[in-house]
Computed example of a mutant assay.
Amino acid sequence: MKRKINFRIITATLFTFSVAMLMPSQASAFDADAAKALAKRNDCMKCHAIDKTKKGPSYKKVAAKYKGKADGQSKLITNFTTEPMVKLSDGKEEKHKLIDTKDINEQKNLADWILSL
């Protein structure tokens, strides 16, 4: 009887591990180089840095705000595709710049990269 229980535990553990290995991780779900290139091409780095506040918040701060929220990715995409009014570090407000791509996969990739920080 003890042998059956151990076999079931081992089988369940191996199955769980196998399923986990097949699922894409957050780290592999996006192309960081393509996201950085899109951000640079659109001058996003003039207002944002990865880990420090410039004219706009750091990408790490943005990620902390939206990470783990079901609509985090869509809120980020909305932010860089609709020109909402945003508050700058000096307290002034201006329209957020649009990115130059209509490709939803590129937009999602950029949002996922930001959320990974």
Rank of each mutant, 00 (worst) to 15 (best):
M1H: 14
K2D: 10
R3C: 15
I5H: 08
N6R: 13
F7R: 13
F7W: 11
F7V: 12
F7P: 14
I9A: 12
I10E: 09
T11G: 15
A12W: 02
A12Y: 04
T13N: 13
L14M: 03
L14Q: 04
L14Y: 04
L14V: 06
F15M: 10
T16D: 04
F17V: 12
F17E: 07
F17Q: 06
S18H: 14
S18D: 08
V19D: 05
A20I: 15
A20N: 08
L22V: 05
M23Y: 13
M23I: 13
P24V: 02
P24R: 01
P24H: 01
S25R: 05
A27T: 11
A29Y: 08
A29I: 15
D31H: 06
A32Q: 05
D33G: 12
D33H: 12
A34Q: 07
A35V: 08
K36H: 08
K36L: 09
A37N: 08
L38C: 12
A39C: 05
A39G: 06
A39V: 07
K40P: 07
R41E: 14
R41Q: 15
D43G: 06
D43E: 15
C44Y: 00
M45G: 06
M45R: 02
M45Y: 05
C47E: 02
C47L: 03
H48E: 00
H48C: 03
D51I: 08
K54N: 13
K54P: 14
K54T: 12
K54Q: 15
S58F: 00
S58Q: 00
Y59E: 00
K60Q: 09
K61H: 07
A63R: 02
A63C: 05
A63E: 02
A63V: 07
A64K: 10
A64H: 08
A64C: 08
A64V: 15
K67I: 15
K67Q: 10
G68P: 03
K69Q: 09
K69M: 06
D71R: 02
G72E: 01
G72S: 02
Q73C: 11
S74Y: 10
K75Q: 11
L76M: 03
I77P: 01
I77E: 00
N79K: 11
T81H: 06
E83Q: 11
P84S: 05
P84F: 04
P84M: 03
M85Y: 12
M85A: 14
L88A: 02
S89D: 07
S89E: 09
S89C: 11
S89V: 08
D90V: 03
G91D: 02
K92A: 11
H96R: 01
H96Y: 04
H96S: 01
K97E: 11
K97P: 10
L98G: 04
D100W: 09
D100Q: 09
D103G: 03
I104S: 00
N105F: 14
E106C: 15
E106L: 12
Q107T: 07
N109A: 07
N109L: 11
L110W: 03
L110M: 07
L110E: 04
A111K: 07
D112Q: 14
D112S: 11
D112C: 14
I114H: 01
I114V: 12
I114P: 04
S116L: 10
